[in-house]
Amino acid sequence: MSAELEEKTAVYFLFSRLFREAPDGALLRSVTEQKLLTLAFCFSGDAVPGNTTILEDPDWPARVDDIAVEYTSLFVAPGEKAVSPYESYYCDRLTIDTSTANSCYFRSESLPEGMKGFLGGESAVQVQTIYEAEGFRKVTAFHELPDHAACELEFMGRMLQAGKEDAAEAFFKEHLGRWIFVFLNHLTKQTVSNFYQKVALSLERFIQREETQQ
């Protein structure tokens, strides 16, 4: 595996980790000290331009609790600040069979074909099937849906790690690439601290570059 591919793999794993759960102090220190978001932001060629704006805020490690609270409000707890980190939420429609319903309230002709904004849709089933076909399963300790951003980003990394660049490219086109930009756009609007703003900015740029290169 080339060094670049290896590094790219690690970037996917880093972002997967950042969406999987709130970062602990050690991870925040590494991200901050090693300027990992900045590196991912300008992931191109061998060197990082000297005039690159540093994304990291040296205060992040000290704000580990605040960041954990914001992680929860963005990705775990329902509410106005929430940003749904699932492919199904953005890409699938849920339809209800009303053929046997008995109610004065039904106006089935006026109901839409299906509604967006739900979890556990076709996308979740499809990505699970893809994971299994490639020999992976969701770890049981990760109580999340298979189309969660953390899973899809990790799967990209796993494919690159295994040298399956074509599989990664296909997965990006059919799944991750369909929704990740919308998700990051929402995240940028919803987040109030600069940590997830920078995470969103960095991942967006990294993935844009990936998309261009594919």
Binding site: A10, R20, L36, Y131, F142
Partner: peptide, 19 residues
């Protein structure tokens, strides 16, 4: 960029979502 690898190597990313 090699710092990414150090990050993984140091185990800071913990257990992933897939196995």
């Amino acid at each position: 960029r090699r710092k990414f690898l150090k990050l993984s190597g140091a185990g800071l990313l913990g257990v992933g979502t897939l196995t």
